[in-house]
Computed example of a mutant assay.
Amino acid sequence: MTYEITLQQLPSVRLAGLAHRGPYPSVGPVFQQLAGLVAEPSWVEVEGMAMIGHDDPREVPAEELRAHACLVVGEGFALFPPLEEIRYPAGRYAVLRLKGPYEKLPEAYRWMDSEWLPGSGERPRDLDPYEVYLNDPSETAPEDLLTEIRLPLKG
C-alpha cells in the first residue's frame, strides 16, 4: 500500500500528555483518564487530541512500548501533575493523512519510515513523529476516521 505525503510548514504545537506503557492499541483508557482530568473551563484551550509513540513496535516488545496520550493545548492551558508538557517546534513536517480505522496506523508508519523516507531525500529531526486525530471516534464510523501522522524534518 502507498500513501500520500505532503511537506508542510507547521506552527509550534504544545501538548499536555499522560504517559502510557504497553501496546499502542491499549492507550484508549489513558485518553479517557486524560479527558477526566480537565475541568470544564479549561476545554476552551484544548484544540484536539494527539498521541506520541516513542518506540518502534517492530523493534520493541509490545509490553515495553512507551507513548503519551495528549491534548493539543493553547498557551493559556494551565498544566498540572500528572500532565507533562511536550512541545514540538515550528518547522517542516512530512504529513501523512490516513482515512480509516486506527488499526491501519502501524502499516502507515511502516511505509513512511521504510519506503517513503529512504527515497525522499529528507532527514528526520531528532523528535518522535506524532499523530493528530482530526475527528472524534465516538461520533465517527471507523472507516471515516481521519488521522495525521506528522514527522518533523530537518531544514
Rank of each mutant, 00 (worst) to 15 (best):
P89S: 08
M49E: 12
D56W: 01
Y88S: 00
E63N: 13
L10H: 14
E45Q: 14
P11S: 13
A141N: 08
G100N: 01
P124W: 04
I149R: 00
E84C: 06
R21V: 06
V60Q: 13
L65P: 12
S26F: 08
P23E: 09
C70H: 06
L7D: 15
L146H: 05
A94T: 04
I86Y: 03
P57W: 11
F31A: 05
Q33N: 07
I86M: 01
E139Q: 15
D113S: 09
R110T: 11
E139N: 08
A62N: 10
D128Y: 13
T147V: 13
S114H: 05
P81L: 00
K104I: 06
P29W: 08
R92T: 11
G28C: 03
G91A: 04
G74V: 04
G76E: 00
G53V: 11
F77H: 03
M49L: 15
D113P: 01
W111P: 03
M51T: 14
Y93E: 14
D126Q: 07
W43R: 06
Y102D: 03
V73A: 02
L37F: 05
K99Q: 10
L96K: 07
E115R: 13
V38Q: 12
P81C: 01
Q32P: 08
G76K: 00
E84M: 09
Y130F: 14
G48W: 05
A39F: 10
Y88I: 01
R110H: 12
L65H: 07
E64S: 14
E75P: 02
A67C: 10
R14P: 01
D126C: 04
Y109D: 00
I52D: 01
L96W: 05
K104A: 14
A62P: 11
E148D: 15
P81G: 00
Y133W: 04
I86V: 06
D55R: 03
